[in-house]
Design a protein around this nucleic acid. Structure first.
Lengths: 242, 242
DNA sequence: ATGAGTAAGTGTCTTAAAGACAATAAAAAG
DNA sequence: CTTTTTATTGTCTTTAAGACACTTACTCAT
């Protein structure tokens, strides 16, 4: 799908024919956790609609190279971060005749998580990409309905924090329980009981003790854990379905 | 979007140009509960791809009349059932270059629920639509990846049966608790504790006692309940987020 | 009428998991 | 070696689910 830098060149091409199908894009919402904050990856748009505004690192399906929607999401993320995130899950599809001024359009949104350190270096070399703290998203002008999509993704991630340790994918490979708990607290917007949190994770056997420890300088050092591979949904609530 | 009755007429038109975007459809999975069984609405395909096979009652977005994706789902369901279901929720989007022989295609699937009685009469007048019991879906040849989509929808509905009374939308407006419990048991594939089930629903104040009762002929008559309007997600598990 | 049969609905004890919070352990700094 | 700080554990309380016996309200046959 060709990109246009302004409205004139876009319309010059497209107005000549009837669209016979909605525009279709894929938009990943990539979260990470850094400096005690939740951050989202944004890209400055260089192409026609909403040019100059910040938006999600998405784009059109490349029918030649992408096998499926997830492949599109992965490709777009790789283009911006140079790596593929360890967590990628379809979020929701947003489609209407008002969300894009070009006409009827649909975007399939994905939620992705990865460690800040994994791609911070690469992102700093790219001038049109940045990690935006979610708490300072209010004033920033965003393209299309991307603010709503980010809100939606954040709310879903908040739900996951209630019954799983999926948010741990926003941390480095090795992390401490206090770190993970604080991330959950940021997501949920409230303090959690240390004991309950640890108990649930331990009972569910979701983590592996690496044997290593790390100190923040002050206080007793915390044990470093790693996620157990292939533990599926990383759920730690009792399954009522048994 | 024009429909074609066979491959020749389809290719005659479409092969002349490059597709510049994937095909986009909307496919609602409409469930109901009847004769102690879960049933899904299927239609016999009359148009080219997969012609003659049974499939979901979906179709293309009508860019002239549909405001958004949900409107498309509602319109397609209304075309087959003559009514709009009381429950409609987006399920998942399936997109790949293999699911439709015409090429790259995406479908946005919805889960819908409604009472059997609401549209049974209308469906019986339409020869190409039927309520298919989910237990007898194995042998039936289905179009595209519609079997997978139905499985996906059923699994999601099963999850909802664990922590909500959303399945109640597959029942008539007034229903009894034993009815609802049995529906949940069908979805979960296991018996539930009467007391626990009732306690959770009562504690969550999701239903209204209509004052009426209904007897199956045998035994004590059961109280008829109605869903409380606007109770949102109809969740009856304790919200860990408080 | 009346008692048997049946399914709806309730009481209550047990078990499982979360909340509260005090107590202990392991480090750094002086 | 004591204070400070943060991690980790112990344990009592509270809440919700499971198990299951019991009561209630109806139909039907006698």
């Amino acid at each position: 799908m060709t990109e246009y830098t302004d409205e004139v060149s876009f319309l010059a091409h497209y107005n000549r024919r009837e669209f016979d199908a909605p525009l279709l894009t894929v938009d990943p919402v990539l979260f990470t956790y850094h400096e005690a904050q939740l951050k989202v990856l944004l890209v400055e748009r260089s192409a026609y609609p909403e040019r100059g505004l910040w938006g999600l690192p998405g784009g059109f399906v490349d029918m030649a190279s992408d096998q499926n929607l997830e492949a599109t999401a992965q490709r777009k993320l790789r283009e911006k971060t140079s790596v593929t995130p360890p967590y990628l899950e379809q979020l929701y599809s947003f489609g209407s005749n008002t969300r894009d001024k070009r006409g009827w359009s649909v975007t399939v949104a994905y939620t992705a998580l990865m460690a800040y350190q994994e791609c911070a270096a690469h992102i700093e070399t790219v001038s049109d990409a940045k990690w935006q703290p979610l708490d300072h998203l209010n004033n920033l002008p965003l393209a299309f309905d991307h603010r709503q999509i980010i809100e939606f993704a954040r709310e879903r991630l908040r739900q996951k924090a209630l019954y799983s340790i999926v948010p741990a994918y926003a941390l480095p490979e090795k992390f401490t329980l206090p770190e993970l708990q604080h991330l959950h607290e940021v997501l949920l917007g409230k303090a959690l009981q240390k004991k309950s949190f640890r108990r649930r994770i331990e009972d569910a056997e979701l983590l592996i003790d690496t044997g290593e420890k790390r100190s923040d300088g002050n206080g007793r050092p915390a044990v470093l854990y790693r996620m157990k591979e292939g533990s599926g949904g990383y759920t730690f609530v009792r399954n009522l379905a048994e």
